[in-house]
């Protein structure tokens, strides 16, 4: 029964072209593995190469904890301000005359 369902599912996927289009997944997957997976694996290897526990040491460092708080605050304030300014900017681009659109999009 399970085999029949699997075959039926495969036939359905082939019929709507999903099977043929699966190769389209390979370039982004390869990109993902090369540009994110490999560097992250190298970081894990590096982090575990020290004598002590680098993760515990990082979390115990006051300067790191302070920087995390500062980064989150900075990102939150910058995000709120950017979305506010960006909305006004986008409205101006949408309703402005052609030269204003060109100027604003060029400056953006």
């Amino acid at each position: 029964m399970a085999v029949e369902e699997a075959v039926a599912g495969r036939r359905a996927r082939t019929a709507d072209g999903a099977g043929e289009r699966r190769w389209l997944l390979w370039p982004p997957l390869a990109f993902f593995v090369l540009l994110l997976g490999v560097p992250v694996a190298a970081l894990v290897r590096q982090a575990l190469s020290g004598e002590g526990n680098a993760f515990a040491e990082s979390i115990r460092m006051t300067v790191f904890v302070d920087a995390v708080g500062r980064t989150l605050l900075l990102a939150a304030v910058a995000t709120a301000a950017t979305v506010l300014v960006g909305t006004c900017y986008a409205l101006a681009v949408a309703v402005g005359p052609a030269w204003v659109k060109a100027l604003l999009m060029g400056a953006c």
């Binding site: 970081l43 993760f55 990082s58 500062r70 980064t71």
Partner: peptide, 27 residues
């Protein structure tokens, strides 16, 4: 006003603690 990225750079280039810098990057 150093952010996390700045602290990571400090660990990698100034403190010569690549393992701590890598752990911070992963965090």
């Amino acid at each position: 006003n150093m952010t996390v990225s700045g602290i990571i750079n400090g660990q990698l280039n100034n403190a010569n603690r690549a393992d701590v810098g890598a752990a911070m990057s992963l965090l």
